[in-house]
Amino acid sequence: MNNEVVIKCENISKTFPTADGTAFDVIADFSIEVNKNEFVVLIGPGQCGKTTLINIIAGLEEATSGIVTVGGELVTEPDPKIGVVYQETNLFPWLTVMGNVEFGPKAQGESKASRQERAQKYIDLVGLTGFENQHPNKLSGGMQQRVGIARVYTNEPLVLLLDEPFGHLDAQTRYLMEEELEKIWRQERRTVLFVTNNLEEAIFLADRIVLMTNCPSTVKQEYIIDLPRPRDITSREFLKIREEISKNLDLTS
């Protein structure tokens, strides 16, 4: 395994002031390292701090203390090398599929021919050939998230942050999308940090699972998942790992 560290969080804490003047800790002393082309899944209960953590790594929010580096550089503001896919309301409804996918390079002033060629490559890769001129409201939830994935890939980021991207999909579509994402990732390797609260999804996708505590969020334990890919969620090894982690996973929230 390549051990070049790409994402590095050192002692991240985030505190929000509350209405009654006390402080509310959402993230406390969170540290993690993600290696090049590694797929790391953060799994934790509840709604506490996960989107905030993603936004801190993406440079959209400032940590109360601690530092984040991506590709060796300190993160202080959003940067095209850090791509994010959120759970919902991700796509721009006023743009077509193509308009959404080419948004990043277009904002960077890349020429139309060049950016659309790349956009088309990823639209094809996520299986949406023929839907280029549709608006997102004509697509199903699963298809919309495919567009989100194609869009973030087209921007060619160094790292991908995915914040419960399949959280609002039905179970069937969710399985399908997990398989799809895994397939795309094996074809187009990237450094991925993926947030979920679904253990099966975590084991299916991760090279490494980072288990988090509930409010304030911090690292509880790490698990290396070295099952061969693509994984069979009904295999004995899969279920064994699942049982082992779930003993430790406190899903009460």
Partner: peptide
């Protein structure tokens, strides 16, 4: 304006 739309655009380096 949906803040998520603003976040997404910012992560794409929009000015």
């Amino acid at each position: 304006t949906n803040p998520v739309h603003m976040w997404v655009a910012q992560t794409f380096g929009a000015s």
